[in-house]
């Protein structure tokens, strides 16, 4: 259950998988994303509502074949330059995109978590997204005759999320802004949770175990593993890092330099894997 991060990625994520790294501004699993880059995984379909800088990094490093998303920007800063370069110029590899709205993506995970093939919402009506994303369609309500929108369940091979704490059995405490992590984990075949710390006993706070051990495949300790996003109760969002990413990512050369020094040359020591 408790594994080093590199082992967790090696065991759970394979070339060609559909992988969802979720975390809505809060608790973004950045350390796991960097480990995927270090292991040189390829041809991944990356799902994420808000592919921010961690997916920019994975796309730039050549891990992705396809992106399933609803908003691809650097929050509060601007565009994602590696994502742009992949879409506009096919660098470092062509990137297929499947584009939704937030409401659509959230409902796709809900359907996946619920074990049903599609979700129903009021959404997308009148937009050009419908013409570009083949799996957005309409459905007639069997009770009222009203026309609504249907989107298919999203069922990734593996979900990766970051949380504050887990116990040794793999029960995961996650609090603050919980985003869509629960739905992503329940929708996926396998789930890897990185945590700030593994503890012998979780302080019992009713309602705060978001993920019971039985839905978690593996837990890896990764202190600071959500930086530069934040972990409520542990550390704040590093807004400067988001600003600085704009300059680092703008040119291929500076990005590759960053990859060499900050990711490929910066493997986490094994002791952070939780084996003490």
């Amino acid at each position: 259950m408790i594994v080093p991060l590199d082992e967790g990625i090696r065991e759970l994520v394979h070339d060609g998988d559909t992988v969802a790294l979720e975390g809505f501004t809060h608790l973004i699993p950045v350390a796991a994303g960097h480990e995927i880059i270090r292991q040189g995984l390829r041809d991944l379909t990356l799902a994420r509502m808000t592919p921010d800088i961690v997916y920019d990094q994975m796309i730039g490093a050549g891990c992705a074949r396809k992106l399933v998303f609803s908003w691809g920007g650097n929050p509060g800063v601007g565009s994602l330059h590696r994502f742009r370069d992949a879409v506009q110029n096919g660098w470092p590899a062509p990137l297929e995109i499947e584009e939704h709205s937030h409401a659509g993506m959230a409902n796709r995970y809900v359907a996946g978590a619920s074990g049903i093939p599609f979700a129903v919402l009021r959404g997308y009506t009148g937009t050009d997204l419908i013409a570009q994303t083949p799996d957005i369609t309409t459905i007639t309500c069997p009770f009222t005759g009203e026309e609504l929108t249907a989107v298919p369940a999203l069922t990734p091979d593996v979900a990766i999320v970051h949380a504050q704490r887990a116990d040794r059995a793999g029960n995961v405490q996650l609090w603050g802004i919980t985003g869509v992590q629960k739905e992503a984990v329940l929708a996926s075949r396998r789930a890897l949770v990185t945590v700030e710390e593994v503890v012998d006993r979780l302080d019992p706070v009713p309602g705060q175990v978001l993920l019971p051990a039985r839905v978690v495949t593996a837990v890896a300790e990764a202190p600071g593993g959500a930086r530069p996003s934040y972990a409520h109760g542990y550390y704040a969002r590093d807004n400067d890092a988001y600003q600085q990413w704009d300059a680092v990512s703008r040119e291929r050369e500076t990005f590759e330099q960053w990859l060499r020094t900050e990711v490929r040359g910066n493997a986490r020591p094994a002791r952070e894997g939780g084996r003490t």
């Binding site: 998303f69 908003w71 691809g72 742009r84 584009e99 937030h102 409401a103 959404g123």
Partner: peptide, 10 residues
Amino acid sequence: RLPGAGGAPE
């Protein structure tokens, strides 16, 4: 290529 829809359509 711009960031896309996010919550805006709904």
